Computed example of a mutant assay.
Amino acid sequence: MSDDKTKQGRDRKFIARGEPYEVRHFADTHDISIELAEKLIKQHGNSREALDAAAKAMKA
């Protein structure tokens, strides 16, 4: 059975908190520690858009 093509790309809108490689990638992208990345995810949820904004706001 093939993948559902209508759901393509939806996962990129979220960061999987339970997947260490995704948290590490987010932390590396924003040049922050993994601990801080986990804290942001806990505070703002797993929406990549909200987390990107929060990380950028911290640096400003």
Rank of each mutant, 00 (worst) to 15 (best):
Glu38Trp: 05
His25Glu: 14
Ala50Thr: 10
Ala54Gly: 10
His25Gly: 09
Ala50Met: 08
Leu36Thr: 11
Phe14Tyr: 15
Gly45His: 10
Asp4Ile: 05
Thr29Trp: 02
Ala55Gly: 07
Gly9Leu: 07
Ala27Trp: 04
Ala57Lys: 14
Asp4Arg: 07
Asp3Glu: 12
Ile15Cys: 05
Ala55Ser: 13
Tyr21Ile: 10
Lys7His: 03
Lys59Trp: 03
Ala60Tyr: 03
Thr6Arg: 15
Asp3Gln: 12
Arg10Met: 09
Pro20Asn: 10
Phe26Cys: 04
Ser33Asn: 06
Ala54Cys: 10
Arg12Ile: 07
Lys56Ala: 15
Ser2Pro: 14
Lys5Asp: 05
Tyr21Glu: 15
Asp4Leu: 09
Pro20Tyr: 04
Gly18Thr: 12
Arg24Ile: 10
Leu36His: 12
Arg17Val: 08
Asp4Gln: 06
Gly45Tyr: 08
Lys7Val: 03
Thr6Pro: 00
Glu22Phe: 06
Phe14Val: 11
Leu36Pro: 00
Ala57Asn: 11
Leu40Val: 02
Asp4Cys: 08
Gly45Trp: 06
Asn46Trp: 03
Ala16Ile: 06
Arg10Leu: 15
Gly45Arg: 08
Lys13Pro: 00
Arg12Val: 09
His44Asp: 00
Thr29Phe: 05
Ala54Asn: 07
Asp3Trp: 05
Phe14Cys: 01
Lys56Arg: 15
Ala53Pro: 00
Arg17Asp: 10
Asp3Cys: 01
Thr6His: 11
Leu51Ser: 05
Ile15Trp: 00
